[in-house]
Write a protein that binds this DNA or RNA. Structure first.
Length: 438
RNA sequence: GUCUCGUUCGUCUAAUGGUUAGGACUCCAGGUUUUCAUCCUGGCAAUAGGGGUUCGACUCCCCUACGAGAUGCCA
């Protein structure tokens, strides 16, 4: 039994694509499940500027999602170097073998082509099954370029050499490589080595059903980091895109994913990324955080938004919205009204409130009744008393009061809003609401 | 154009010849909460179309439509 060795080989594009993240995750899950090795290789064949910076975005994204690697970038290992740009001698060695065997020939401009065997090639893919490509017709499948006139090698060539040199046992990659694989198989055969096993996973589509591209909103893992996703939720959600456990379980810890993962349960059809469901899943995770964890995680977002972090009410306000928000980025909008003098009103909430024509009178009455109260509990109870005195139900005044005080249709518990805001501010907000909206 | 793959509620998916086609998200309606959220209950909603094979088809075969990928001296 050969040891399981998988790899993720991104090129330094400056961001970790959602699809790339899932490819990395599946490779990682498979390696972890089999006690194998997960390699991070850098496909930097083109000499790009800011290569290191561009790659940093990728490994930071992986680290955020909790995908660690055993070999490769910054870890080293026995099969290095792990940057393609430093592996030229290795490529040359295998190229010379092809040359000696007469499997390559040179074009007029100096480029080298690999001579395909003119036969049918069958790929047995762990996800896609058997796929046969006919190479008999040279017009349809011309020999492929493996080396450029400047001496550098093309993707197909280096990819195969790297995988065989690094003794990769399973190549798990996006379906966009499916048609490349028979070519790679020809190369393995010419090299005289056993190819690895292949598993091609379906692509991730954007909201409109097209392949997610760099321009798409939410194409980068970083986008979800900025939205304030819990990393474990992100990992969980991405794992369920194109793979399913064949059970109705949806919430998985990393350990559970490792145990349940199975290449044969990967779908063939591409999947769309549904932000609403992702946010729902994220909320399942934020709900499970301790108050401390939630506060710690939300703080950076609040600081970035300029909220006064040392304010005595800050901690209580943040804790109060833990079960109200989907992601950390929503916290600021849910509590900022407590820390700002100017209040902005949610149009939808105001419209809903104003549908009841009794509301202005009720709020005006409450404003009068709210003076000279001992504490916030009394103030909260007063809402019911005022409502009843006017012949309304308490509930008919609770919601309008919430909107008048916070400007929002939802959020912190009303009693707590009153408590944190203080009597004077409450009365002022009612006054302001009546002036502006009524 | 050619080659390859794919197509189940709006979305993620289950059901590999026999189910009232199941679950989840969204949405809607109730309940709980004097408000909001959580939570609970219920509801709307799908086998792309057409032919076969079969006692029986989401499931197998063929055609069409649609989608995706490949067809680079990009990766």
């Amino acid at each position: 039994m050969t040891p399981v060795r998988t790899r993720f080989a991104p090129s330094p594009t400056g961001y970790l694509h959602l699809g790339g993240a899932r490819t990395a995750l599946f490779n990682w899950l498979f390696a972890r499940q089999h006690g194998g090795t997960f390699v991070l290789r850098v496909e930097d064949t083109d000499d790009k500027r800011n290569k290191e910076e561009a790659f940093a975005a990728i490994y930071e994204g992986m680290q955020w999602m909790g995908i660690d690697w055993d070999e490769g970038f910054e870890k080293g290992g026995d099969f290095g170097p792990y940057n393609q740009s430093e592996r030229h001698d290795l490529y040359l060695k295998w190229f010379e073998k092809l040359e000696a065997d007469g499997r390559v020939y040179q074009e007029d401009d100096g480029a080298w082509r690999f001579r395909f065997e003119r036969k049918e090639v069958t790929l047995t893919d762990l996800v896609c099954g058997e796929i046969t490509i006919d190479y008999k017709n040279e017009e349809i499948n011309p020999d492929m370029t493996v080396r450029r006139p400047d001496g550098s090698f093309t993707f197909h060539f280096v990819n195969v050499v790297d995988d065989l040199e690094m003794q990769i046992s399973h190549v798990i990659r996006g379906e966009d490589h499916l048609m490349n694989t028979p070519k790679h198989l020809q190369l393995y055969e010419a090299f005289g080595v056993e190819p690895p096993q292949f598993a091609h996973i379906p692509l991730i589509l954007n909201d409109s059903g097209k392949k997610m591209s760099k321009r798409d909103e939410g194409a980068a893992v970083k986008d979800y980091q900025e939205l304030g996703f819990v990393p474990e939720a992100m990992t969980n959600f991405v794992a369920l895109l194109g793979w399913n456990p064949k059970t109705e379980q949806e919430i998985f810890t990393a350990e559970e994913l490792i145990a349940a993962f199975n290449l044969s349960h990967i779908n063939r059809a591409p999947a769309r990324f549904d932000l609403k469901k992702a946010l729902w899943m994220n909320q399942q995770y934020t709900l499970e955080l301790s108050a401390d964890e939630f506060y710690e995680s939300a703080s950076p977002y609040l600081e970035a938004a300029g909220l006064p972090m040392s304010h005595p009410n800050m901690r209580a306000a943040v804790e109060a919205v833990q079960e109200k928000v989907n992601c950390f980025d929503d916290v600021e909008g849910a509590i900022s009204f407590l820390f700002e003098d100017d209040i902005s009103y949610d149009d939808e909430a105001v419209t809903k409130v104003m549908k009841n024509e009794n509301v202005p009178a009720l709020l005006a009455a409450l404003k009068e009744d709210w003076t000279n109260l001992e504490n916030w509990e009394e103030a909260k109870d007063q809402i019911g008393i005022t409502a009843k005195a006017a012949g309304s139900k308490p509930g008919q005044l609770m919601f309008p009061t919430r909107v008048a005080l916070s400007g929002l249709g939802g959020g912190i518990d009303l009693g707590l809003i009153i408590h944190l805001m203080g009597q004077e501010n409450c009365v002022n907000r009612l006054e302001h609401f009546l002036t502006v909206q009524a």
